[in-house]
Deep mutational scan, measured.
Amino acid sequence: PDFTLHWNGITIHFKGIDEEQFRHLRELLDRGVSLEELEELAKELIK
């Protein structure tokens, strides 16, 4: 499924991740993950 997340004025689209992965990403963003960390995470998910 696809998810869209609005965070700090940025709209991020996640394609092909499951709800569990999306929930994990939201928790990280709510905790204050940096954009660099988010990019690293995205690379991991894409593999």
Rank of each mutant, 00 (worst) to 15 (best):
L29E: 00
W7M: 09
T4G: 01
D30W: 07
E40Y: 11
G16S: 05
E39K: 12
D2I: 14
F3R: 01
I12A: 02
T4K: 09
P1K: 15
L45F: 08
E20K: 11
G9N: 04
L45G: 05
I10P: 00
E39V: 14
H13G: 04
L38T: 01
L45H: 07
D30F: 09
I12N: 00
H13V: 14
G9I: 00
E27K: 10
D2H: 13
I46F: 03
L5M: 05
E37N: 07
D30C: 06
E36R: 13
Q21R: 04
N8D: 06
E44I: 10
L45Q: 05
D30I: 10
D18S: 13
H24V: 13
L29V: 08
E44G: 13
L28C: 05
F3P: 01
H24T: 14
H13I: 15
E36S: 13
L28T: 05
K47A: 14
L29I: 10
E20A: 13
E39L: 15
D2G: 14
E37Y: 10
L28Y: 05
L41G: 01
T11F: 03
P1V: 14
L35H: 04
D18Q: 04
Q21K: 09
E44P: 00
L38I: 15
R23C: 14
K15Y: 15
F14T: 04
G16K: 03
S34A: 09
E19Q: 07
H24C: 12
T4M: 05
I10A: 05
E39M: 15
S34Q: 06
R26T: 15
S34W: 07
L35N: 03
Q21W: 08
H13K: 06
E40I: 14
G16I: 05
L41A: 10
R26S: 14
E20W: 06
R26G: 09
G32Q: 05
E40K: 15
T4N: 04
T4Y: 08
E39T: 14
R23V: 14
W7F: 10
R31Y: 08
I10D: 02
L25N: 00
R31T: 12
L28A: 13
E44W: 02
L35C: 05
L5A: 01
L5W: 01
E39S: 10
L25D: 00
H13S: 10
Q21G: 09
A42D: 02
D2E: 14
H13Q: 10
D2T: 15
E19I: 08
T4A: 03
E19A: 08
